[in-house]
């Protein structure tokens, strides 16, 4: 069991940093308590890319639901939306030697989080569920 913070917000980039501020606050506390330095930078980067994807490609008429779940073992961020699903599992890693100008978002999410799971149409209402987990043990 752990702590949960839930937010419902418009699917609009203008609101992204409001949640980002909460994540920053949580991560700063975790770093102060001994978590890996840079945790906040990395988790916020992953969250921002996830939010960007949903906001730029999702349905702006549908709100996003964000859960932050914190336990001694992990920090999880779950974002739910009802827009068109995207082919998360088909996205391959970019060739960084080519200095790509786009297509980096999911790579950032996967790199900075311990686990990223995307379940399109996860329930009968058509909700897509993106869950990103950062392991805090032994980090």
């Amino acid at each position: 069991m752990g702590d949960r913070i839930s937010v419902v917000l418009p699917n609009n980039l203008r609101y992204r940093d409001a949640v980002g501020a909460m994540i920053r606050e949580i991560c700063q506390r975790l770093e102060h308590e001994g978590a890996e330095a840079g945790l906040g930078h990395q988790v916020i980067s992953a969250f921002n890319e996830a939010f960007n994807n949903l906001s730029l490609h999702g349905d702006e008429r549908e709100d996003l639901e964000v859960d932050l779940l914190l336990s001694a073992e992990q920090l999880a961020i779950e974002i739910r939306d009802r827009g068109e699903p995207f082919n998360y599992n088909e996205v391959t890693a970019p060739d960084l030697d080519e200095l790509p100008e786009s297509g980096l978002g999911i790579f950032i999410m996967r790199s900075f989080m311990s686990e990223v799971r995307y379940v399109p149409r996860a329930d009968a209402s058509g909700t897509n569920r993106l869950r990103m987990i950062r392991d805090l043990r032994g980090a």
Binding site: G20, I44, S45, N48, E49, N52, L99, P100, E101, S102, G103, L104, G105, I108
Partner: peptide, 16 residues
């Protein structure tokens, strides 16, 4: 303060 993949894209575009 913060950069994301879109911001990186802008800088890399100029660089190239």
């Amino acid at each position: 303060t913060l950069i994301d993949s879109s911001g990186v894209g802008a800088i890399v575009s100029l660089f190239k």
